[in-house]
């Protein structure tokens, strides 16, 4: 059994008053709550904090803990936990504390806590009347980043989760688990994909929570994304803008031919309907026109340009603020 230094977790001296412990706990709980703190280990740290608070806020538990601690144990050291001669009341096992501050789910506390404070009734969440009915296992939310191509075509992904599992002794350990997930087509930023029953364990497997994958789109070198719409910059030559042209452009579904209308201006957006991310309705792909001038031209070209300049003098001239 690995010793846990509860005073260190809460951040108080071993002789701290109960009020000091309560205040320290509340301040940390606000910072570490997984709904507020997005770091990967927030949930584990919050559970650790809840466990430390449960142990220290009850004078009887604190006394038993202090007695063990007097042996000079440090965090992580292997220690034999004495079987407690008094059985701690099931209500003390965790869940909503008497001051209303929830300590997280007692069933997730460490084996060290479970042995110190008697194994009886540890899995139960508080006493009668504290819960409406047995809870379904909680859901797990896991962000995944997908490329635009995966979002468009769908794909397969294998990834690892650390999930709690109830072991024979009734305690809870974290196991690494590998999951294969098929990703559907037509994902956008914020799409949730549900894997039934892969969340936290419930009282039965039917009542396991679900695993929700929350999709984030990776930035793409070529496409900009706005909801289901995509945009790319399309650079064309001046004569293509003037005369119009057929241009090959990439889409997520392969190359298509886009028609540039005559008289196209820089900054104009051409819309390829339905070529964005799939959905009801599918998004569009926009081509944002840029007109580039060739950096070097032959003498012959220059002559042609000069002739053109003379011819087209009336049609367009350099202007400020146009």
């Amino acid at each position: 059994m690995k010793f846990k230094d509860y005073y260190r977790v809460v951040g108080v001296a071993p002789d701290a008053s109960l009020d000091a412990i309560k205040n320290a706990y509340r301040t940390l709980a606000r910072k570490l709550h997984p709904d507020v703190n997005k770091q990967a280990d927030a949930e584990r740290r919050f559970t650790d904090l809840g466990e430390a608070y449960e142990a220290l806020k009850d004078p009887a538990k604190r006394a038993a803990y202090d007695q063990l601690r007097a042996g000079g144990w440090r965090e992580g050291q292997e220690v034999d936990v004495p079987t407690s001669s008094r059985s701690f009341h099931a209500d003390d096992a965790g869940g909503v504390g008497d001051d209303g501050f929830g300590a997280g789910d007692a069933a997730r506390f460490s084996a060290f806590f479970q042995s110190m404070f008697s194994g009886r009734g540890q899995g139960a969440r508080g006493g009668p009347g504290r819960q409406a009915f047995p809870r379904r296992g909680e859901d797990i939310h896991h962000p995944i980043t997908v490329s635009l191509e995966e979002a468009y075509h769908g794909g397969e992904r294998q990834f690892q989760l650390r999930v709690p599992q109830i072991v024979a002794s009734g305690g809870v350990v974290e196991v690494a688990r590998t999951l294969n997930a098929k990703l559907p087509k037509g994902m956008v930023a914020g799409t949730r994909i549900r894997l039934r029953g892969q969340g936290h364990p419930g009282p039965t497997t039917e009542e396991n929570g679900d695993l929700y994958l929350e999709v984030e789109l990776a930035a793409h070198a070529l496409y900009r994304v706005d909801g289901r719409d995509l945009a790319i910059d399309l650079t064309i030559a001046p004569w293509e803008a003037v005369l119009g042209a057929q241009v090959a452009v990439p889409t997520l579904d392969g190359q298509v031919t886009a028609t540039i209308p005559p008289g196209a201006q820089a900054g104009e957006k051409l819309r390829l309907k339905g070529r964005g991310l799939p959905g009801e309705p599918p998004g569009d792909q926009y081509l944002v026109l840029r007109i580039a001038v060739p950096p070097q031209v032959s003498e012959k070209s220059k002559d042609l340009y000069r002739a053109l300049a003379k011819e087209a003098a009336g049609e367009l001239q350099a202007q400020v603020g146009a």
Binding site: T178, N180, R192
Partner: peptide, 30 residues
Amino acid sequence: MDDPLPIGEIVIATRSYSLSQLCAVCGVHA
């Protein structure tokens, strides 16, 4: 470490819950 699980059932989450269903999911009274 477990063996890789079989491919999970994927559903794009679009369910709708009634009040009593949501109570069951959340474990609270109405």
